Simulated scan of single mutants.
Amino acid sequence: MNLDEIWKIFFQHLHTSSHILQYEQKNFAGIPFLYIDADMNTTKKEIDEAILASSIRAASHQKVTWRTSFVRNDGSRYVYQHRFIVPLQKMFCCGNNCTDCVRYERT
């Protein structure tokens, strides 16, 4: 399974959360950020639990892990840095002109 399918499963499960009204993923410098709009009565802990449950569902039966870091919130809008990590896959350019350099990947 590729990483795009894992993200798709993650977002499908995140969409079912009753606390999350809307979400959006943006990439800055190759790092994915989640922008989550929640209802006013939702706590950060409930958002964290929804992200955790969705990550567990997306990564089950796969050889991936994930890392989530809270960045900030503004009222009911929460921003997280969230990425799925595939073992033994290059994630940055080392500058050695490797044939499998991430600069040459097609998106």
Rank of each mutant, 00 (worst) to 15 (best):
I9H: 09
E105P: 03
S60I: 14
A53D: 04
T107Y: 15
M1H: 15
Q81F: 00
H13G: 00
S54C: 02
D48N: 06
K45H: 12
N96I: 03
M40D: 03
S18R: 15
H61R: 08
C93V: 00
E46R: 08
A50Q: 09
Q62H: 12
E49Q: 07
I36M: 03
I31K: 07
E105F: 15
S54F: 10
M40W: 09
W66L: 02
K8A: 12
H19V: 02
N2C: 10
I6L: 10
C101G: 13
P87L: 08
D39N: 13
N97A: 01
L34A: 02
T65H: 04
V86H: 11
E24C: 09
Q62F: 12
C93N: 14
A50R: 08
F28A: 12
Q89P: 01
A38W: 13
S18L: 14
S76A: 08
R67V: 14
F92S: 13
S55M: 01
H82M: 03
L21S: 06
M91S: 15
V71K: 14
V71D: 09
V64E: 08
I31G: 03
D100R: 09
W7N: 06
A50S: 12
V71F: 00
E5S: 14
Q12G: 04
I31Q: 03
K63E: 09
Y23P: 01
D100F: 06
A29P: 02
Y104R: 02
Q22C: 11
Q81A: 11
P32Q: 05
N97K: 15
K90W: 00
N27R: 13
I20D: 06
D48G: 05
S60F: 15
L34G: 02
F11R: 11
I51D: 07
L34D: 03
L34R: 01
F70L: 07
L34P: 01
V102L: 09
W66K: 07
V71H: 12
C94H: 14
V79Y: 04
K8Q: 10
T65D: 12
E105L: 07
T68G: 11
I31M: 13
I56V: 08
R77K: 05
